[in-house]
Design a protein around this nucleic acid. Sequence first.
DNA 1: CAGCCTCGAGTTCT
DNA 2: CTCGAGGCTG
Length: 670
Amino acid sequence: MTSSEAKKRISELSHLIEEHNYNYYVLAKPAISDYDFDMLLEELQKLEKEFPEFLSPDSPSQRVGGAITKEFQTVKHMYPMLSLGNTYSEEELKDFDDRVAKTLQEKYEYVCELKYDGVAIGISYKQGKFNQAVTRGDGEKGDDVTNNVRTIRSVPIKLRGNGFPPSFEIRGEIVMPREVFNEINREREEIGEIPLANPRNSAAGTLKLQDSGAVAKRNLDCYLYSLLGEELSYDSHYDSLEAAKSWGFKVPIYTKKVPDINAVFEFINNWDKARMDLPFDIDGVVIKVNSYAQQKALGYTAKSPRWAIAFKFKAVQVSTVLESISYQVGRTGAITPVANLKPVLLAGTTVKRASLHNADIIEKLDVRIGDTVFVEKGGEIIPKIVGVDLPKRPPHAKAVHFITHCPECHTELRRSEEEAQHFCPNESGCPPQIKGKMEHFTGRRAMNIDGMGSETIELLYDSGLLKNIADIYDLKKEDLLPLDRMAEKSAANLIKGIEDSKQIPFERVLFAIGIRHIGETTAKKLAYYFKDIEQLKKASPEELMEVGDIGGKIAQSVAAYFKDERNADLIHRLQKKGLNFRLSEEALANTSEKLNGLTFVVSGKFRDISRDDLKKLIEQHGGKNVGSVSGNTSYLVAGEKMGPEKLKKAEKLGVQIISEEAFMKMVSDT
DNA sequence: CAGCCTCGAGTTCT
DNA sequence: CTCGAGGCTG
């Protein structure tokens, strides 16, 4: 065969095979037998081997995978992948509908979709070709799993027709069909491997396999339900899905456009009953306002769109016996009661423990030792006791008496009137509190000391080397070497990690030392406002409350912390070791009091700066960020595509609207 | 004063 | 993820 003949045949075969893939995996209507299909694929592979110059990454032969990915690259999403608000009852859903009706004041339609219990994915297409697939991650950034997603046959590699824009993103859910899941577990059991827990975790696990060849064998499926892009010209969500379908995407056939909330209820009730008949798991229904114009009018909260909501089906419940209650001590001294349950299988995992949160919850549930309780998984993962099976209560069931003394250090517990939680007041002498504080201090978001996780801390604490966080900086390699599991290498790494942590900026050090009520955000605010630890130490509660978002409770907590001599001493030691207790020169140069007392709303996208950086600038110059325009707002900083509601409101209230450039002038030196 | 939003803290199992 | 606390808006 000549080279040009081969090229032609490869192209023909590729096209033909993708066509059959589409018929089989998207339409579920195979046009040829499996055998004939395999023959075509085999011929293609043979030709590609002979003429490798014609092997394209878009070839259907590439769907069998093979590429090995060492680590997945983290990629920033073009459009943040928001989560949806959740509802669990018809009333809550009715409330949602009322809010929509009130905002829109006109007719609107909903689109109902099934809520797949899988892994969310965003796939970009360029010039009609599969380009990149990224997991949800934290919503801002996700993992690039392009090679693995390419092996999913229902995801088109080349789009059909030519109605699609040159570049866009489509979002959906990757699931493992129940049948595939069962099949895999049958095989695993045969060869004595531990079965996979449930389809959802299996899909997630599969997507993170480093060998895309292994992924291809797992037969994942992908349902797509949302289009994003600058060049899309549709008026409604439903129309865009119809278009996506025509380009060859597997858009769920279950999606339905409905005229009002009652039809939504009907959709929900039908699927709640029929969901077992589906080939995959769903955990609810998603309801979206159909019209794009109306979606825009409704806008977003910080976390989720106001034009869509998820209705979750009642979680699966099981009942089991509460055998005993143990009490955990957290780093703040908070005592958390934990139920020890007779192990029971729930949604694929064995549940042995469940948090009871605090004494009020125990009282409200009226649980007693020996009771049979109902357990379900709140938020898919964390088990939760939701009630007691009263008829099954044994006559001798013991009421729970909350402990009066700390289970670890035996100090008498305290509980103030208005607080839900009991506390152990022995802050500096209660082992779990000390260890907890250290774990917090060394954690990734705080001092980020590599090699110092909970196990190492346990080891160092028990051996008497660490009594408080300042001792960390006195550690020497010679101290570490005699310890178990501390060879030359890990000791050196640990020392290096400790040394490196001295570079951590002031705001993170302030967070790390663990003042009650001071998390990442509040620590930053305090750092920018007071600039160094001396100023902060001197501040009275009244002065502290000058800072935005800091009220009486937090101010008291900060003042009390610095009043305690042990803390003052601790900080003194850390200062001597060279940790940062003032803002860096760079940060300092970027701060001022120019915006003191001013309140800003930031809306839209900006040309030279990200929204987050802009907000940071506002804070560094003494200004305050708020989410929505009100009478107290000084300025609305307007970017591209800002929320129309905000604009309208600002105009109505006479709030000054300024551009990115005007804002930059306000904070620049001149 | 109610209703919101944001932040902090604690949590399960593999 | 969820709950509660705290703060802010209207």
